[in-house]
């Protein structure tokens, strides 16, 4: 197959994939519409068209943007705090047997506690508002990032170290030219998973402990039986989550570890 055929083939494949995805979505919306017509109860299940109208209203009055912004700020605050703690800690533990023995049992004990179980403690410590949400998102993002970064740190290939040493790399140069790059694919995976977890956790935290954000908006709308608002909140959460994880995936393949993926 020559290069042009090859490209055409890839475009065809991509078109097919996108087409099928769109078809799946359309089928889902159709079923939803039918179900809501059959139920005929806007509190239980408003039709997609109503949800779309509500989208329009919430965008027009600016409240959706406000809630999105509040949630995103919290997610990124927690995510960056978690990442800047988890990655160095994981790498240090990967290389130091003593520290590993000291810290790992603790981590094994804390890790199974779901982020949601931290919420009461977080509220007691920090009250309602932003801080508990930062804390919960950070907890949620921390473990996937830590676990993956640790795996990356321990995946060092001795042959690569020897190759670099034989070419004159100093111990310090080894750290930046061999150890860090070998850990990078796993770190990138951890960041992607961690961001997803943080996004889910922020909504959970806002359901209980905040006075703004998408989670809060869902909760308030439920209390006032405005189900189409609840669905706006939920779909926005889905869309933004997919978008964030997707862009991080692209960043990973194009920028962070392009050498790890075939072109």
């Amino acid at each position: 197959m020559n290069r042009r055929d090859h490209r055409l083939d890839r475009i065809r494949q991509a078109a097919l994939t996108i087409g099928l995805g769109a078809a799946g979505l359309a089928i889902f919306l159709a079923i939803w519409t039918l179900a809501s017509l059959k139920l005929d109860n806007d509190v239980l299940l408003p039709p997609p068209a109503d949800v779309l109208t509500t989208y329009g209203e919430l965008i027009a009055d600016g409240s959706l943007a406000g809630d999105v912004k509040a949630s995103i700020v919290r997610v990124f605050a927690g995510f960056f705090a978690a990442a800047s703690l988890a990655v160095p800690l994981a790498l240090v533990l990967a290389y130091s047997r003593i520290l590993r023995a000291l810290v790992m049992p603790l981590i094994a004990l804390i890790r199974p506690i779901p982020p949601i179980a931290w919420i009461p403690l977080a509220i007691l410590w920090m009250g309602l508002g932003d801080p508990p949400s930062y804390f919960i998102t950070a907890i949620a993002a921390f473990f996937p990032i830590f676990i993956n970064a640790f795996a990356g740190g321990t995946s060092l290939v001795e042959e690569h170290v020897n190759a670099a040493r034989s070419l004159g790399a100093s111990p310090l140069a080894l750290l930046t030219t061999v150890m860090l790059p070998s850990a990078l694919p796993s770190i990138a995976t951890g960041l992607r998973i961690g961001l997803g977890q943080a996004w889910m956790a922020v909504v959970t935290a806002e359901l209980v402990a905040a006075q703004s954000g998408l989670g809060y908006m869902i909760q308030i709308s439920r209390l006032s039986l405005e189900t189409s608002r609840v669905l706006v909140g939920m779909t926005v959460i889905g869309l933004l989550g997919a978008l964030m994880i997707g862009s991080l995936g692209v960043l990973e393949r194009r920028v962070i570890v392009p050498w790890h993926y075939p072109r």
Binding site: E159, H160, A164, S166, G168, T177, L184, H260
Partner: peptide, 27 residues
């Protein structure tokens, strides 16, 4: 390790995160 001595291993052991150019220029 000394610059007067080069080594080629059984497996190529190129560093996967560097391009061919980066690998050759590593030292």
């Amino acid at each position: 390790p000394h610059p007067a001595v080069g080594i080629v291993f059984q497996e190529p052991r190129l560093l996967p995160w560097l391009t061919v150019e980066g690998n050759v220029g590593f030292g």
